[in-house]
Design a protein around this nucleic acid. Structure first.
Length: 210
DNA sequence: AAAGGGAGCAACCGCTGCCTC
DNA sequence: CGAGGCAGCGGTTGCTCCCTT
């Protein structure tokens, strides 16, 4: 329970998007002191953030091993199968997808797969009882699962085909990301960008001499 | 060219479970 | 054994970007 730690009335506590400065402070601090005891970490590092916020930022974004963007068809299939098995146990599912975070998988599911599932279910007979509220795919229904996977893959493929590679990555090619906009410099990016931006952050961290 | 709407994603919120004292 | 503190989880919100009209 985050009784005091999550006191959102505290004017000293910053909320909203993380700035690059904050990211660097957090990276530096964790590099020097390691993770853990997030509330005191936030205080010691001089971040006006809750420990919770620091933990989330680190786990979902700043960790060096985090992979972002471009969910592969294999990963899609795995997500669908594991979700069919475990439901919305995102962290459990994420453990089977190295480098992926529960938040990313959750967002991916809600924004992409859920949409395709609905389409697929509409496409299949209306006589089949389904649970749209809590998507419940039976692994024993390969046709539906395959339909969803192929639907997702096809959609993603279409998107990647319709975007010239340098459009999605344009803001990162040949110039430093625009950090003025806060952490959004790496949103909606593919693997290449993400490696790019995070390497950038980490190299800056290293340049700081830590 | 501008406005509206939808999609995608980062971050917050509230809750639960575990651990320590 | 109970209280308090922390980490972790899942749901939700709100912002930004991009596409369509």
């Amino acid at each position: 329970m985050d009784k005091k730690a999550c006191n959102s009335e505290d004017p000293e506590v910053r909320k909203g998007p993380w700035t690059m400065e904050e990211d660097l402070i957090l990276i530096n601090y964790i590099a020097n002191h390691g993770e853990g005891v997030w509330n005191s970490l936030a205080r010691s590092a001089g971040l006006k953030r809750t420990g919770k916020s620091c933990r989330l930022r680190w786990l979902n974004y700043l960790r060096p091993d985090v992979r972002r963007g471009n969910i592969t068809p294999e990963e899609q299939l795995l997500i669908i199968e594991l979700h069919a098995k475990w439901g919305n146990r995102w962290s459990k599912i994420a453990k089977h997808l190295p480098g992926r975070t529960d938040n990313e998988i959750k967002n991916y599911w809600r924004t992409r797969i859920q949409k395709h599932i609905k389409q697929a279910e509409n496409f299949t007979s209306s006589s089949t009882t389904s649970n749209l509220g809590h998507i419940n795919i039976n692994v024993g229904q390969p046709s539906l699962t395959n339909q969803i996977v192929s639907s997702c893959v096809a959609a993603d493929h279409a998107v990647s085909q319709s975007y010239p590679p340098n459009i999605a990555t344009s803001s990162f090619h040949g110039t430093l990301p625009n950090f003025d906009q806060g952490p959004n410099f790496s949103t909606q990016s593919n693997d290449h960008n993400n490696i790019w931006s995070m390497e950038d952050l980490w190299s800056m961290h290293l340049l700081n001499g830590d």
